[in-house]
Design a protein around this nucleic acid. Structure first.
Lengths: 243, 243
DNA sequence: CGAATCGTTGATTCAACTCAACGCGAGTGG
DNA sequence: CCACTCGCGTTGAGTTGAATCAACGATTCG
């Protein structure tokens, strides 16, 4: 297990992709007090209504966030890979409006809201990078609204696979072609606004067309360009490499 | 037409609901350079790919933001009423990832990104209020993902009516019961991920049940509690009155 | 008055859901 | 070590919510 400072250097590197940091900014980040915590698959990091005192940087593993609607249906609203800040919003919005749960065994670094907030305004470069991080997340939500609202099951499924593969590649976790998405078909369905049965059928057609390969409980990309075309995917909304 | 300073006082009042401001903060906001602009119905304020130099505060009217997908489908991702900041994200994300269009005749106050950004870090209370504003917007996007992904047409339509009525009331624009939503059924459909034909039928059943009243080109609420129940609506995700 | 836009309604189709059964691999415990 | 369970994936049959296609009515505006 890495120590806090090493982990925070990862956070600093991530933030540098969102905006230039000085040596002082970098040091201020890596010397923040932080606590490492491990979570098991399906364990809750946070529940709707909670009032957490810290925000979390995902060091390793996968987590997802979801809402429950009146009829018991679940909608996954985001999936996070190592390198993501997963609950920045609670830094300024005291009460959690959704649940956060581990998808796989995961490690997170917890930083007190007051520390992160103070740092954001004593070191504006850091503040801007964090703010930008939260704005990119909002942009991804907008894309998900369009994805769920206006794409059919095939394009919608392909789009989400493309997005997660791209974000993972950008986070330096390996080429998108080799990436495997460790979600069950039920979880995928809840992210896509589909039933697991229909996800199964949709994945089958994507595999039959040579676009993806399914292994036990994960999905890998077999033909990036083909999948991208089916998905109507462009990465502009991820705001990569923009400052 | 109001002058810039009067309009910016409205912005300052809005931001005060997001976090305490000092007299100095208030003055700093109202003395920002700003330009008032008028837009006609359907006129574009911003298009995907643009790189605007300013952000916009909606003084009067309605605007909406939308994305176009591969098959030509349109998804409206947000609807804004007077008092909303409508493109804060471009302050830190140079390239627009969606379109912004006037729904009705509208007036906006434009503030240069560099001015808003500088103010945010010289006056942290203002920065926090603006950041919080953008985080609440992200929370609304999450709710829309769940709405479009996991609620049927009836609940989904009711939910959006409840949300817009609540937001409008909170913004001080009159009681939610008297509010009229000035959207065509086609626009409503594009916001809800439905066709205009199905919106028509859904609104009819809501009216037949005494929950709403339809007038020419708008919708009013007839039975708030009934509509709220159908919608599975709670306002927690709007983070009202939290600091 | 004519044209355009939007709302309404009916008939039909279809994408996705529901329900149900069965397969399969990974654990687990007797 | 094998039988059992459990979670997840797969497949088929039938249903349904929403889309599509098409026509017509109402209102607004030039």
């Amino acid at each position: 297990m890495a120590d806090g400072e090493t982990v925070l250097a990862e956070l600093a590197k991530r933030l540098e992709t969102r905006g230039a940091l000085t040596v002082d900014d970098f040091t201020a980040i890596t010397t923040l007090p932080c606590t490492l915590r491990e979570f098991e698959p399906n364990q809750y990091l946070l529940r709707e209504g909670d009032r957490p005192k810290f925000c979390s940087f995902l060091v390793s593993g996968f987590v997802f966030r979801h809402k429950i609607v009146a009829d018991g249906g679940r909608q996954i609203v985001s999936v996070h890979t190592a390198g993501d800040m997963i609950d920045l919003q609670n830094m300024l919005l005291p009460e959690a409006d959704h649940n956060i749960q581990a998808l796989t065994a995961s490690t997170v670094a917890q930083i007190l809201h007051e520390d992160a907030l103070a740092l954001s305004f004593t070191h504006p470069n850091v503040g801007k990078a964090l703010w930008r991080e939260s704005l990119i997340e909002a942009s991804i939500f907008r894309e998900w609204v369009a994805n769920v609202g206006r794409r059919d099951a095939r394009a919608r499924t392909a789009h989400t696979i493309c997005e997660l593969a791209t974000r993972r590649e950008v986070a330096g976790l390996g080429a998108r072609e080799t990436y495997e998405l460790p979600m069950t078909q039920e979880q995928l369905g809840d992210a896509l606004g589909l039933t697991s049965v229909h996800v199964n059928r949709t994945l089958k057609t994507l595999q039959d067309d040579g676009l993806i390969v399914r292994r036990k409980r994960s999905v890998a990309i077999a033909n990036w360009e083909g999948l991208r075309a089916v998905a109507d995917f462009t990465s502009n909304y991820l705001h990569l490499g923009q400052r």
